[in-house]
Design a protein around this nucleic acid. Structure first.
Lengths: 224, 224, 224, 224
DNA sequence: TATGAATGAGGCTTCATTCAT
DNA sequence: CATGAATGAAGCCTCATTCAT
């Protein structure tokens, strides 16, 4: 998925030129490396130097494109949120029966967070930062408002057709799904270390995926 | 709840005097200040200088008692884990009916994590660190093994008397309780910012406390 | 003889300007200042800050070019050894009669060590360090292997033509020359202080230069 | 040789007392440990803390007995010089024939410096210090003046009876003996490292001991 | 456009030393 | 006499960033 696709293309490039001259590609490469770095070390633990070293382009370009470390982090944060919300919109849940729709949303969230540890770690890091970068980004907030609408529609349909006997606010349901899926990844290391249970393993993942879906669906279906 | 308990004790001491020859108290004060600092900024964002400034004693004492920043962090980590596991052991759940016992454990976890944001943030930070400090501390691992035993006994009793129709591994149940209670605090800032729902408020907290308990107990009671 | 050679060159440069984009020159200046500092105070007594202050460039550049204090010291050590061994190779002793060749080598060593107190002090310092930096440097060892070959050739010729009646290992001869020339400089201060004899003075130096040459040549010439 | 001789003596000591109360013994122990430390690391590399740790008594006692690091170093320096000059006075060379007397003095110096690396290293260190401590100590200067008298008497007798055909100043002869014996120890590490010749080995030591004696005696005996 | 060189501010830590008991 | 606790000053080094070409 990561952009090395068209290597060697661009015939308009002089053979003796020092570097490729594709600004957007350079930008994307920096962004990709930075995401890894921020995900691995958080904002204050991340090193601009390390990002520079791992990028084909020079460190100076980071400042050229993103202004400073904070600007780069903000760009990564927006990028990462755009990823999940973009994926969510492809789900087409409105045509499924409520229980199935909700199950699919839960599964999707589970799979996405499991597959995108970077996303999880950057949001953890953002919470450590006091969410001060998120607060600056109108774009991220816009991106996220859609999930609640999706959930709201499923809940409404489920309540209407009697599949769900429990009345829940969309934000509360999203909270539970998110908590259970996110924590598995965000706290994987301490949890595994302490309880000797590898949350990343196939076995535990499969078990937890089922358990989480059943827990939440069970909550919606049973009123007491 | 955070340690201001014995401030101002020791009346025989001149208030402005610099030298306090009370090693344990000095140690504890550093630990308390450090916990705040590490909780607020994570390991790499924390500043030894800031901890020194906010301590009545000199910065130098940090190194005297804890060796270095890492040693101090490790001490904080152990302290913080000892706190929750110590509190858990006072619950006396073995005499309660299984459902009530489990409900109480869930409520306790909810309340504890809500009241101890430091604990939550330090564990988040530890996950950002790759759990490398936790890995060094046998003490923390020992402390934590007890929770699973407590949960195991409740589950066994509930299965035996028919209160619980679902068979769950203790570690999986602990995972769910922990995830739901922890995420509320660890991700409070981004969640609130994005969804405009203040997870720290009394109203939402009360609602979630009930919801979490019902969700988990519901899962245990209903087999499908 | 110490490196002020090219000071004030580069007339096209504004005298008060801070940024000099001449990396090799910057590197050399740091090296020169560092040699003085390490020679004067040894490794542990030397202060990186002092080196920084005495350099036109910023202290930060020390780390830019040499990594850390140890790296800088190692560079100085290599530089200093390269100096003497480089000079030795210009002697062209193979065309002289053995006695004269040996005399010239002794004189050279005497003069070089007298003129390069830095060299002597840094090697003293290295011995105080347990030779731990030298051990890391393959380069220094390579540089030094040549002297023994030079001495070996002179000894062989002298034995062959009967000038030398004593059979000596090259390393032992080098030891004596080095000891007598080195000690004069390395122990100058304590020796002068205790015996009231200024080893650095012209008078004593001239006398010792003759004495050392005669002592060693005498040893080679007389068998008993 | 180092003072633990009378352990457990002193019956007047209360059994419950925290530590032995023998000031002179405490002083000597500190001195002994400090000598090792200064010999190993030089003045600036030596650590008061390390001396404190390796002494049965507490670090505070160092300051009690010696004032500060400099005072302790000075005491060590005097102690170390007193050692060699004290030994030299037991030689009784005046009754031996000049050549034998001189040979014995050379051998003594060789053996003493070989056996007392601490002595050598502390004097090296003192030279790195600019001999500033030595300069403060009248006592050390007094101690050392005697060697030259001893040498002077041997030389006079040798010149008188024709054993020595060379006229040498006592200080110059002392210089040569000292240089050859001292350098072997002071520069042992760099020399061995570079030339792969272990100066501390029995084999090389025996060879050098003979060589040094013959070199110097040869110089005295042969006029050209 | 792109880059190596340069940098001030501030980070963590160690040092010899003194205080209070 | 003896000791653990406490300390200011200064050490080495890293950080994000900007300059000059």
């Amino acid at each position: 998925m990561d952009g090395e696709a068209s290597a060697g293309v661009r015939p308009d490039q002089a053979p003796g030129s020092r570097r490729r001259l594709d600004p957007e590609r350079t930008r994307q490469e920096i962004l990709r490396v930075a995401r890894k770095e921020f995900a691995e070390h958080g904002f204050s633990g991340a090193r601009v130097d390390r990002i520079g070293e791992r990028t084909a382009t020079a460190k100076r370009m980071i400042y050229y494109y993103f202004g400073n470390k904070e600007g780069l982090y903000l760009a990564v944060l927006e990028d990462v949120y755009a990823g999940i919300r973009g994926s969510e919109t492809t789900l087409e849940l409105d045509d499924l029966p409520p229980i199935e729709a909700m199950g699919r949303l839960i599964d999707f969230t589970f799979d996405y967070e499991r597959a995108n540890e970077d996303f999880v770690r950057i949001i953890s890091s953002e919470n450590m930062n006091g969410a001060r970068f998120l607060r600056r980004s109108q774009r991220v907030r816009d991106l996220n408002s859609k999930v609640l609408e999706v959930i709201g529609r499923i809940l409404a349909r489920g309540t209407a057709d009697g599949s769900f006997r429990r009345s829940v606010a969309p934000v509360d349901l999203h909270f539970m799904v998110s908590a259970l899926c996110f924590y598995r990844v965000s706290n994987r290391l301490t949890f595994s270390e302490i309880f000797g249970c590898d949350l990343a393993s196939e076995e535990v993942s499969a078990r937890h995926k089922r358990m989480i879906r059943e827990t939440i669906l069970g909550y919606l279906r049973h009123a007491d």
